[in-house]
Every structure is written in structure tokens, then in C-alpha cells.
Amino acid sequence: MDLNADLGEGFGHWTLGDDKALLSVVTSANIACGYHAGDADTMRETCIRAAESGVAVGAHVGYRDLAGFGRRFIDVAPDTLTNEVLAQLGALAAFAKAAGTRISYVKPHGALYNTLVRHESQADAVVDAVRLFDPALAVLGPPGAVWLKRAEVAGLRVWHEAFADRAYTAAATLLPRTEPGAVLRDPAEIAARCVQLATEGWVRSTTGRPVRIAADSICVHGDTPNAVDIARAVRTALESAGVEVARVESPLRHTRQAV
């Protein structure tokens, strides 16, 4: 099982999360590309640390929304969205190359991530951007998302993701952050559900009903106050349960394609 985190989300004098500590735990880093968060200094530093830690670099692309941290829907024209994603990929690729590494995959952020579950024209726009930039890149998102289906049709590699620290509805969707209990805090509880997810393929929803989630990667949000404790608890629990924690692109692993 791959373990990923959203990193590089500082901006200027503003810092968010303990990226250095998380990079010693996770196997993949979703690095902000300057639109919802991140700047040139942060992108370069995070890429350097990821390369030194042997952590895969993923482009965490989002809406042009620094003020809203990319968590507000923007009804952007598809062509513009394609160009904005291309701009983000190009920026991060430059810093990754300078650090002696490369982008391995693309993961949308925040509102864009949720929008691409059903929004067909924006899904096509993001798929077009990835395909135009580098069709060898993988894409990471939730099982069943429209954009992953379109990505597979376009010939892109598809990786499925689940969230360690977010509550799921009975429909296997994330409970909105505006709802109580949407973000989980207890490292022990989170670790136990991640083991269940990795070994049995399901988690318990907010109604108590089990929901099936087949995942290649588990995400811990880097901006959660105790993110490092959560990530360490999850990795320790997975390894104790006999689950190999490794980059999803590792040759030691067999990556399941979307179905």
C-alpha cells in the first residue's frame, strides 16, 4: 500500500504542516503547484527533500484560488482549466528536475478533486492537460470518479485513493468538511481503519454501514494538526499487519488498473 500526503502547502512566510517529518513516513508526496498553495521556494525545497527521502513526487494541481486554499468550486472554462493545469505541471516539473527527481503522478486538490468526480467537461480538461504534458504520468483519485474513467479511456495509468483521516458516507463519498466529524483526529482509530481498508477493502461509513473501497494509495492530509502522529500510526499499523508500505509505482508492487 502506498501512503501519500499533501505537502508543500506553505506560501511566503506562511507555513503549513511539518513536511520534513512527513517525508520520513510517507512514500508519495502530493506537492502544491502554486495555485491553491505553494510558491517557488516551497516547491523547490519540497522536491529536494522528497528526492533525498526516496519519496515519489506527485503534482497536486488545483483551482487558481490562493485565498480559498483551493476549496471553492470555480466554474472555469475547460480550455482555461487545461492551460492552468499545464502551467502547474510545468512549474513543478522544473523543480523536480532540478532536485534530481521527476513527477510520477497527478492528483487534483480540494474542490477540483471533488468536482472531477462528476463534472464531465472539467474532467476532460484535466485529462487533456495530463495527456498533453506527459501521457506516461499516472493519475490519482477516488474510485468511480468520472475523471479517472476518462483518463483510462485516454490511455493514462489510473491509481485509486482512499483517505485515512476523512469520514465516508454510505455512498462511499467523503463527508463534506462542513459536517461534524468529517475530519478524523484519533491516530489509533485512523490506523485501525487503514489496516481494515488495506487488508479487507472496506471502511465503516458514518451510518455504520460498511462501504467497499479498493485503493492503491492512502492519503493523510498534511494540514491536519496531528498529521505526523497519524501518518506514523498508520504506517506502523500497516506494517505490523503484514502490509508492505511502498510507492505505488514501485517495481515490487503490482499496480491494479481501474475497472
Rank of each mutant, 00 (worst) to 15 (best):
G12A: 06
T169H: 02
A170K: 12
V117I: 15
A51Q: 01
V146E: 13
V195R: 08
L132R: 15
A32C: 03
G58R: 06
T173F: 10
G12Y: 09
V85T: 15
D124S: 14
A227R: 07
E52R: 11
R166K: 05
T169G: 15
A145D: 14
I218W: 04
V228E: 06
Y113S: 12
G110I: 08
S250G: 11
D134N: 14
R118V: 11
L132E: 13
I190T: 01
W202N: 09
E120V: 12
E239M: 10
A32W: 05
P142F: 00
S24C: 11
R44E: 13
A227V: 05
K149I: 08
I218V: 15
L81N: 04
P187A: 13
K107M: 09
A258L: 15
S53D: 05
L197P: 01
V211N: 05
V245R: 11
L81I: 10
G62N: 12
Y105T: 05
L174M: 06
R177N: 10
P225A: 08
A198Q: 03
L174T: 10
L132W: 01
L238N: 07
V211D: 11
G141L: 03
A21T: 05
A111P: 11
V245H: 10
V195G: 10
V243T: 04
E161G: 13
F73E: 12
V248L: 10
G100V: 04
D124E: 13
K107G: 08
D134Q: 14
L174K: 08
V106D: 02
A59R: 00
D128L: 05
V183K: 00
V228Q: 02
V139M: 08
Q257I: 02
A237P: 05
R185L: 03
L174D: 13
S217M: 06
T80N: 02
A98N: 03
L92C: 12
D2A: 00
A5G: 09
G38H: 00
D6K: 03
T82P: 01
A37R: 04
V158A: 06
E152W: 01
L16S: 13
A237S: 14
R212S: 14
G68H: 11
K149Q: 14
V243I: 11
R157W: 00
Q122G: 12
A241W: 01
A123N: 07
P176F: 01
L197Y: 00
V25F: 05
D128F: 00
G181K: 07
V26T: 10
L89R: 09
A241C: 11
C33I: 12
A59T: 00
H160K: 09
A162E: 10
I218N: 02
H254P: 00
H13E: 08
I218M: 06
V85N: 07
E45K: 14
T42D: 01
G181P: 12
R166I: 04
G242I: 02
D65M: 09
A237L: 09
G12P: 07
P187L: 12
A111Y: 07
A151E: 12
I213G: 10
T169D: 14
N83R: 15
A172G: 09
P251D: 12
E249F: 06
A77W: 02
A136I: 03
H160A: 15
L116T: 01
H60L: 11
A32D: 05
N226K: 01
F73I: 13
G141A: 09
P187D: 13
V139C: 13
V76S: 12
V55Q: 10
Q257A: 15
I190H: 08
V25S: 01
V146K: 14
D6V: 06
R235V: 13
A241V: 13
R157M: 12
